[in-house]
Amino acid sequence: MDLFNIPLPAILSQLVVGLINGSFYALLSLGLAIIFGLLNIINFAHGAQYMLGAFAAWFGLQYLGINYWVALLVAPLAVGAFGMLLERTMLSRLYREDHLYGLLLTFGLALIIEGLFVQGFGVSGNPYATPEALRGPVNLGFMMLPKYRLWVIVVSVVVCIACWLVIERTKLGAYLRAGTENPRLLQAFGVNVPLMITLTYGFGVALAALAGVLAAPIFQVSPKMGSDLIIVVFAVVVIGGMGSILGSIVTGLGLGVIEGATKVVWPEASNTVIFVIMAIVLLVRPAGLFGKEK
């Protein structure tokens, strides 16, 4: 069976490649959505924090003998802790101000962090070896897929579903949802909302760092890796609906696939298709596919 005279296996393999990109979109936009929901801050430092995750893994392997599996846990914790420090010392002063201030501050932080890393490590990027256990291909029937890429898809989907379940089905998630709606009232009930905000920001940042560690063996570990990706991720967030958890997951994965499909049909458009979709969604549903009008 051919579509537009393109063999089916070629289509399927592009869709799988799209799903890998989608895995990163989903993890990153999920973190952005959680942060925006509770803090009302558009975290422009998210791309830099993703890059920090990749660098933490690379630095750990290079200098401290920390292998991939340990980095998968330690790098998000370290970068998340750094995020909490930023929240306590800087972001927390901006909650009474307009959203724009948070955006400007995090954008500035992103530029500073990236600048420092360009200064220290150059722009060319460093390779990160795929862990032993995940080397080699898997045969999916229609294509040979590197094992590591399959692993990225599985981890991303599992982490996203786990986050969604925690937010929608547990007491902790109920606090998060209530805090997103009315933090002052939640605090009047005796919940330590300032602490919750710090931890939530740290968690969102840790998700970005986790995506960074996952990305390290696929892409070059370079200071600019985050800023390349984050523009697309913001388009994903806008399409899904600012602050919508489910929206960020579904549109993240979905847009990756659509991007892959576009590569088959009209390769030249694959870099712009997400922005075209964003423009259409903004015209038809300004709050995003899963967003609620405020």
Binding site: K171, A174, Y175, R177, A178, T180, E181, N182, L186, F189
Partner: peptide, 13 residues
């Protein structure tokens, strides 16, 4: 809270 069920609202504080 609109994003919580009646029981979740009740058990929240």
């Amino acid at each position: 809270f609109a994003s919580l069920s009646v029981e979740e609202n009740l058990l929240l504080p």
